[in-house]
Design a protein around this nucleic acid. Sequence first.
DNA 1: CGCAGCCTTGAAAGCTATCAATACTAGTGG
DNA 2: CCACTAGTATTGATAGCTTTCAAGGCTGCG
Lengths: 225, 225
Amino acid sequence: MTDIAEQLRAAALFQNLDTETLAAIAECAQYRQVERDKLLFQAGDAFQSFFLVVDGHIQLSRLAPSGHEKVVEIIGPEETFAEAVLFMEGRRYPVDARALEAAQLLAIDADCFNRLLDARRGLARNLLGALSKRLHRLVQDVAALTLEDASGRVVGYLLGQIPEGEEADAEIHLPAKKAAIASRLGIQPETFSRILSRLRETGAIEVAGDTIRILEPDKLYHNPG
Amino acid sequence: MTDIAEQLRAAALFQNLDTETLAAIAECAQYRQVERDKLLFQAGDAFQSFFLVVDGHIQLSRLAPSGHEKVVEIIGPEETFAEAVLFMEGRRYPVDARALEAAQLLAIDADCFNRLLDARRGLARNLLGALSKRLHRLVQDVAALTLEDASGRVVGYLLGQIPEGEEADAEIHLPAKKAAIASRLGIQPETFSRILSRLRETGAIEVAGDTIRILEPDKLYHNPG
DNA sequence: CGCAGCCTTGAAAGCTATCAATACTAGTGG
DNA sequence: CCACTAGTATTGATAGCTTTCAAGGCTGCG
């Protein structure tokens, strides 16, 4: 098995595929580096490939007519993005993709992958699963944006970042600059900072740079602004 | 071709499928009526089938811990919903589905449809297309919720409701009670009402019950609260 | 006619954004 | 090793938009 196929296997999108199929996909893929703060693609660009993050973090964002930027998602290692564009009319990327730090990616060629899609059973199913999961997360985001206030969204985000099986005394590493995370949560950086301060003052969390330790999960709730 | 197959063909999800495949799907489907305000399913219910709206409108909503209800989407005739649940872990509906008015639906059995998915080429592709489209819309929603204020979202919604090729003097019929649409837009009914009033006062629109006429599209913009 | 539900309108309170200034951090160069 | 600088984060004060609470108006139906 090639190096690339090995990387692919790590992604949820490509799990449970036979080695032959993985090898075929690997033929469609090639490595790509992006420097910190560089654009990988821009909203409106013609769609050529989708991506698997091998190392680093990529930020997907949209620009508003007013000039404000909104972070839609922050993608980390072993996660894929832009797969959905394969099936969208127009075949253009709907968002900007920017590297938050120097990142290594695998670019999977759209046309090449498309040909595999009909031939290989299970591949379409994997994609459907991946899209459904993303869909579900987005629905949750929309609900959070309207049902919860800023504190609630921050708390929800922190809880969602807790690593598996580490409920007590969890330590979270923020995957991006605080301003980017604030945007992802639909709030201003200042508000994000203030909310963390309040949580810190109540003894719920401990903040040290981009590391946050959850001390008392119970205290996270009911901290209105 | 059966009556059911004919209905299926209307949905974007089942377009460009050969008649044999359509007939096979029709075998998985059966009619279902829902009375006004009745629940079709509830968040947490075991997933058994997804739906095509033949007539009427269905509202998908989520209940917050606080007891508030948020409308995620309003589904009209020839549209499908809950397809994504087919591929989600847990196999439970993530939202409530309620009829806004007496509605007729086609319920497509999940297990039955699932078996077709592997056998029939093109079917998976259609699903992928449908999910991608929905995904894209949700991303736009998320962006709108954070990039635009309440007026901007209302205006965006109105523009999105304009029927094809009717740019000038368009007439819009609101598909649901104003309170439901307000929730969909992430605002309170009072705010929705006030924003429509302001647009009316500026001469941009004309409101008569659930019918809205766009008089001067240019005036829709730049009407801060 | 009268009731119930929905929508509209008004006034006040609350949350978040904005503007502004100060700390802090990391990387650079003297 | 320290000073400097640019970017990032925090903190403060104010303004603005939206929500909330309340009351009045409208419409359709029994």
